[in-house]
Design a protein around this nucleic acid. Structure first.
Length: 144
DNA sequence: GCCAACGTTGGC
DNA sequence: GCCAACGTTGGC
């Protein structure tokens, strides 16, 4: 199993929105990704993989955990390219649980063990990998 | 609101 | 295939 981190601007789609949707039994399609590295990461996701839910711009903190419940499939919001093909993909996710204590970007940056986290190293990448050790540490820091 | 980092586009 | 110009993301 692999671990990931997915960013969302909370004024567009927050972790609260995510949990409400899961409670209603609706999967969330992670649409709107228009970056090949982020897309490739999504295409590598397996069923049951876990991801941190990160609030970008507002909050700048890891607020919860989500789970992959459908493998990558064409993004229904994407326009076909000039060959009529949709190159953008998304996975479906559901909320697992919030972090009791959200972990801020400032805290992550102040933690030497997390200096290589892709969130820090590749700040513009919206879907990034998280190592197993990094995952466990952030869960602990988040009060789990 | 500014700017650094980085991805994409298009001319050559 | 290189690289300059431009656009976008996201932290500050």
């Amino acid at each position: 199993m692999a671990y990931w981190l997915m960013k969302s601007e909370p004024d567009v789609f927050s972790f609260d929105d995510m949990m409400a949707k899961t409670k209603r039994g609706e999967p969330e399609q992670w649409h709107g990704v228009r970056n090949y590295t982020a897309r490739n990461n999504m295409m590598e996701m397996k069923l049951g993989d876990l991801a941190f839910f990160y609030h970008s711009n507002i909050g700048k903190e890891i607020v919860g955990i989500i789970k992959v419940i459908a493998l990558a499939h064409p993004d229904s919001t994407a326009e076909p390219n000039d060959k009529g093909k949709i190159v953008w993909q998304c996975v479906d996710v559901e909320a697992v649980k919030p972090l009791p204590k959200p972990v801020t970007l400032a805290t992550v940056k102040a933690t030497p063990e997390l200096a290589n986290l892709e969130l820090v190293r590749l700040s513009r990448l919206s879907v990034s990998r998280v190592g197993e050790d990094e995952w466990k540490l952030i869960c602990k820091m988040g009060g789990l």
